[in-house]
Computed example of a mutant assay.
Amino acid sequence: MPALTRALAALALVATVLAAPAAASPAEEMNTARDAFRRRDWQAAMPILSSLLYPTPRLSSEEDIYEAHLLLGMSAYESNDRLTATREFEEAIVLQLERKLGTGVFSDDAVALYEERRQALVEKYRLDAEKRALALEREKYRRLVEAMVIVEKRDYYVNFIPFGAGQFQNKQLKKGIFFATAQGVTGAVSAGIWMYLVGSYGLSGTVPNADANDVRRLQQIEIGAGAAFLGLAAWGIVDALVNYKPSIVRKPDESLLPPDLKPAPRSTTRLAPTPLPGGGGVVMTWEF
């Protein structure tokens, strides 16, 4: 009897298991949600669709996932839950950005909201793509500029040109300004006195006795200034030759960068003398 009792219990258990309804598959649940949506039973459709999508989608195809987000968004919209509707529309749009909706199945207002969000996402993705492309181009250009070197050729004959030409070529700005100024002053004094004397007395004219001392003094200044000019010119030539390099290799500077890659200029304040009626003054300029 105990054996018979156990056999009957086992048969009862098997019958119970076979009689229990099998769990619905995701595809069947999706069909149930579709039916509820067609009946406009939003409250019945929403929990089924939500369970199919969250926390992770249980649907196998992208098309079904898109449809589930869309139907959930439409159900939420018709239930006056605009926040959820917007979120679900955007989730659907991300999957199929170019897909538009007709107004035959869904309400016009819901389709309008869907299209509004679609256009916003299309524009956002377009701008993001442009920014990424621009950032990529900038990075390529920066790397190119960093990898570049500039070979600057220097002419030998420039060393023999007075007024600091050799120093300027050697990128010795202060020396170049010194030689240019000193040679300019001494050369101008010597040439100026010579032209004055020639204009006053001619190349081989006779100097009156009354002007002899003044002319002699001017001639001494002329010769001294001329000698100083020649000495400065020779000094400048020697200095330029000593520091001369036929070519130099340097990194590119900011002048090679396009405007959008250059750093913002810093503001500077400058003072400059300026003539004024009855005197002079100083003008302050602010550059930014």
Results as ranks from 00 to 15, higher is better:
A112D: 13
V145F: 08
V105G: 00
K153L: 07
R118H: 00
Q183V: 06
A135H: 11
V145N: 13
R143S: 06
G164I: 14
L97A: 02
M148Q: 11
E139M: 08
R142D: 12
V149K: 09
K100Q: 06
F89K: 14
V151L: 04
A165W: 15
A147P: 05
Y125E: 14
G104D: 13
G176W: 10
F160A: 12
R138W: 03
L95H: 10
L97E: 12
D128Y: 03
Q167A: 09
Y141T: 07
Q183P: 01
G176T: 05
N159A: 06
A112E: 07
R99L: 09
R99V: 03
E98Q: 08
N170V: 04
A129S: 08
L134D: 11
K131P: 11
T181M: 13
L127A: 10
I177S: 07
A147M: 07
S190M: 00
V185A: 05
K171Q: 13
F178G: 07
G102H: 09
I177K: 08
E152K: 12
I177Y: 08
I93S: 01
A120T: 01
R142G: 03
K100Y: 05
S190R: 00
F89N: 10
K131E: 05
K131S: 06
L173Q: 07
K140D: 12
G104S: 09
L134E: 11
Y157M: 15
A180N: 09
G176D: 08
V145C: 10
I93N: 04
R117A: 01
I161R: 14
R126H: 04
I177V: 15
Y125S: 00
V189A: 04
E88M: 15
D109P: 07
F163R: 13
Y156S: 08
F178S: 09
V189D: 01
A182F: 09
Y114N: 08
K124Y: 01
L136T: 15
A110S: 13
S107C: 08
Q169G: 04
Q169R: 09
E98V: 02
K131M: 11
A120C: 01
E130C: 00
T103H: 14
L121V: 00
L113Q: 06
K124Q: 13
V149P: 02
V145L: 07
L127K: 14
A135Q: 14
L127D: 14
T186Q: 01
A129L: 04
E123R: 04
V151M: 02
T181E: 02
L113P: 03
Y125H: 11
A180G: 06
R126F: 00
I177W: 09
V145R: 15
K131D: 04
L121S: 02
Q169T: 12
F106N: 10
D109N: 10
V105A: 05
K175M: 06
E90I: 12
T186G: 03
A133P: 03
A165M: 09
D108L: 13
V145T: 11
R142Y: 05
T103I: 06
K131L: 12
